[in-house]
Design a binder for these strands. Sequence first.
DNA 1: TATGAATGAGAATTCATTCAT
DNA 2: CATGAATGAATTCTCATTCAT
Lengths: 235, 235, 235, 235
Amino acid sequence: MPATRADALRNRETVLRAAARLFAAEGLEVSLERVAQRAGVGAGTVYRHFPSKATLVEAVFAQHLDDLVAAADRWAGRAPAGDALFGFLFEVIEKSARGKLLCDALVADRSWPHATFAASARRFGESLDRLLHHAKRVAAIDADLTATDVNALIAGCATLRSAHPSPARGTRLVWQMLDGLRRPGVTKGAGLRDGGGPRSCAECGHPLRVNSTGRPARYCSPACRQRARRRRLVS
Amino acid sequence: MPATRADALRNRETVLRAAARLFAAEGLEVSLERVAQRAGVGAGTVYRHFPSKATLVEAVFAQHLDDLVAAADRWAGRAPAGDALFGFLFEVIEKSARGKLLCDALVADRSWPHATFAASARRFGESLDRLLHHAKRVAAIDADLTATDVNALIAGCATLRSAHPSPARGTRLVWQMLDGLRRPGVTKGAGLRDGGGPRSCAECGHPLRVNSTGRPARYCSPACRQRARRRRLVS
Amino acid sequence: MPATRADALRNRETVLRAAARLFAAEGLEVSLERVAQRAGVGAGTVYRHFPSKATLVEAVFAQHLDDLVAAADRWAGRAPAGDALFGFLFEVIEKSARGKLLCDALVADRSWPHATFAASARRFGESLDRLLHHAKRVAAIDADLTATDVNALIAGCATLRSAHPSPARGTRLVWQMLDGLRRPGVTKGAGLRDGGGPRSCAECGHPLRVNSTGRPARYCSPACRQRARRRRLVS
Amino acid sequence: MPATRADALRNRETVLRAAARLFAAEGLEVSLERVAQRAGVGAGTVYRHFPSKATLVEAVFAQHLDDLVAAADRWAGRAPAGDALFGFLFEVIEKSARGKLLCDALVADRSWPHATFAASARRFGESLDRLLHHAKRVAAIDADLTATDVNALIAGCATLRSAHPSPARGTRLVWQMLDGLRRPGVTKGAGLRDGGGPRSCAECGHPLRVNSTGRPARYCSPACRQRARRRRLVS
DNA sequence: TATGAATGAGAATTCATTCAT
DNA sequence: CATGAATGAATTCTCATTCAT
């Protein structure tokens, strides 16, 4: 088991990566022949690792969810809890928007009977629940917002993001949408937009790093500052 | 030839309807054989009217856009202008969410070179622009919201709507998202939610019919009233 | 329905014949591509008429059984009843031995759930039962011989027949085997072998036509007479 | 090299046994991967011992023939010679019927060019010839029955045996068939069935052990006695 | 003109065989 | 030497498109 496994595992990873890229770029209907070609292996090798196309799709979805779980854990410790949740949501959306088919991974919970995927989906659900729980404790969001809601929201925002021809503008709209979730009197009022100075980029809405000294930043990056300037000149 | 043309037109319509239903229900990959069967005609007849599958898909998309244009014209006259826009958006989203593939019609502007579709897409864009223009005049939405933005928004909201297992809850979330578009101090404050009594269903957010007499309605339907009551009892 | 059907039916027959020949000659594992080539049609055409390979195999089996039913009906009227049965068995065996896979058609009764085959198998069973019934009435065979027994016997004799490198010798052995079925005191004793002159070919065992006048024939054909002569010369 | 050879030989045997079982149970089309799995070795090991699938099939066939040769030698000494032949035939048929593909081993003489198989086939032919020779000397069978005939007979009877849904009934029919081979006036009359008490089971036809004392047995086993009783009660 | 049969390129999948570890 | 991963040709089946009736 230890000897050849290194090789095989490397191959498995290669195939998985190739499949993820092709699925994201061209949809689930790409032929496995092309996946194999892109991965630089024979068709049989793909089937050795993934006994059917459904298995491969499942593995790609599971991999995506696992990435998201890792992201959730990274955000989990941050404070305030509301910002942790929204930062996580934003990252999920950006990652899922790359290939809109990956949203299906979030939505299709029940219909996937396979073990690998189910485990990943469960883990993702738990991570999300934890973030939601904390956000509710600080009243950053409505108490009745469920993980199911958030899954649908992510799918919707990812679609919006990828449907918009301008990535920056799409991102901006996504933030505006997500703002609709915040508890009116609490986070939204005091938080990212209105009072106390903006804590999110005025151009793309991305959360800003808070500097304790100096003048608070208005934009998350020079790129956004430039874009805003162009916009002002045009109008 | 006028005699046969009536026949042929009827056939064309039949095929188009069958295709629209099947595409919405099962996706664009249904075979033309099944479309023909569902329409009750032979495969050859489908090809007589739509020389390729792409043409048929295009026609279905165009038809969908034309329906939306009709809806836009229906809402165009309503006042206030903000409500007209949001009512229209809601209708579009609901219609597009039935078969999520129809969102593609809104998004795929550039890649469809065919004349029929392009014309429908242009008409849809014009109708949307008109509604946006009026809404901006009464400051219901930000001045920098473009038709492109709205197209992406519709796609996103339709996805959210169809991704949520509960239609009512999905609709609710969509309204919450759309609210994020309203100009803070203006429509949102005075309009659908806070002061002056609700003009949208307190449960699902759907716009309410305004009755000039009697006590203003809180819910759009008995179903929503019941749902709200259940929610109160639970909490 | 009447117009194109002639063509399609002809094609169906062509495919069926080609499949029957190839299956008999090379076994069930011939590819459908080759069947199509042999029939002179495209692969898709085979699938239009027989939606899966199993269906095609079934159709070939059913066709074989139907041929056998026709043979049974031809023999049914003959007298004496014992000769009718044995003549039929001989014909079945000869026909089934051409491609030994066709024996499976007789044996696989229960495992084939498809309607076409089941109907043919039932018809074959009924024809066989009728012949058995009459043969038992004249005590040509044991009363406890069932149709199931006979099916297995046919399969066995057909295998024997096709396994023997010499067709004539194989046929001879088959007759010897079948003779084992005859009721000792009745048909066998008085009939084909010992007393009263042979009623079956002394070389290959095939039943002889009975001529009411002239010297009774010893061989069924000049070929057999010649073979017997050669055998005498050798020994 | 003697050290490793023991290992290798054991592996060869393991693979051969696994292949024999799988071929008998599921046919020659089982994949070599499954053979390897069943044998508990890697696919490469199978190929080390049997350079191609045909070689493996040949080895299984040869092994089967060698088993039969051993059986023939066991029967060879028995008297009377006729019973030795028929006892041997019965054993061969039972063994070959377990997996009907093994009959092919008997029939496919000419088409197998490989040395191993050819040697086994020759040995089998010689053993069979010896039994036939002795049986002819006591006039138990016709003088013109050849080894080729017997090969075909075995194949036929094995097919009959395995084609019959009831093993007992199939065995019975096989004995009835084999009886057709006996020289009328000699063995059959005096031998297994009619005079002097039966020397074969009255139910299944299996040869009975001859006890020099006590009442001669009518059935080969309690199972057959019970079956016969049931049959009597029914009729 | 409508029909539905025919076509054949391509997709998923299997498996005998080879080869790197 | 054993292992089991890699290979790729072959097989079953589908479907967009064409064409005879």
